[in-house]
Nucleic acid binder design. Sequence first.
DNA 1: CTTCTTATTGAAAATGGTTTCCATTATCAA
DNA 2: TTGATAATGGAAACCATTTTCAATAAGAAG
Lengths: 156, 156
Amino acid sequence: MPGRRRMMSPGWGGKFRGCGYRMTVPRQAIMDVLSGTDKHLSAEDIYMKVHKMSPDVGLTTVYRTLELLTQMGLVVKFDFGDGRARYELTEGPKSEHHHHLICASCKRIIEYTDFIDEEMEFLKRAEKGLSKKYNFDIKNHIIQFYGLCDKCKNKK
Amino acid sequence: MPGRRRMMSPGWGGKFRGCGYRMTVPRQAIMDVLSGTDKHLSAEDIYMKVHKMSPDVGLTTVYRTLELLTQMGLVVKFDFGDGRARYELTEGPKSEHHHHLICASCKRIIEYTDFIDEEMEFLKRAEKGLSKKYNFDIKNHIIQFYGLCDKCKNKK
DNA sequence: CTTCTTATTGAAAATGGTTTCCATTATCAA
DNA sequence: TTGATAATGGAAACCATTTTCAATAAGAAG
């Protein structure tokens, strides 16, 4: 096959290199895990999943890579109040746009995808306006509702 | 002045007692600090301010009280990604409804109060719908935009 | 006002997610 | 292939937050 020079993963390598970073085995593995799930995973979750395919990747690297991805805007970091952060790929093919309801008492988390249309409309305008006014390059957003879930509000 | 029996602070005591908790000196001091600022404070910030008036209140109690207040829905707990949580009274007279822009690179935080009207409209509908659908008693919400601030987006 | 139950507190120690250090390794431009 | 240096992993350090526990104080009852 002449003329075909390593047309590998059209994937993430370019994204990394485009930002001045290198593509490495650990980073590829982490991207694979992130794009292979539709759940919000903790660093440890990701570490364990990565470990199955690439046992040499360390937890430290997972943390470093997640921080990098967050800065690049490819990943969103969530805090649900249980002491460990969760991470989600922004543009996952599987990941439907969603947000979270968090029970302030038992910390239960409900993912919802409702009202996204109305939300989109509001967000579009807000993002446009805010990025202009504050000269901010907005890449992601988080919306979280706090309250009491059905179980917690009916007890005590 | 007969007939007047200690008509003290019409304040927070009732709120606490109404939830089955006691009103104490530390709790009163913490409420005073929270209602006396319009900034988002860390636990340590609050501890130090409380300490000026009530030197006996310990940091542990500050944490405990903040957790309590968060569960009661009187306080919102924020995570701006710098490793320490911030707390804000929900219904402060001073506190204008606002949200935050967070620079994913330098962690700078911009508070904005724009687009609140449109937001309110969206939130009103979302909260009503979500609380019904998921049988959730929604007390607060958080909206955060992540991206790069003007300084960070123009450098490497 | 005194008593009693028990929620609350403070200090110190423990916890545990996340970061830092640093010597070694691997990426990729030349 | 080579070389500059970005990236890595393991151990140790960090440090905000939580837990433990004996002492204290709130508030209902008498």
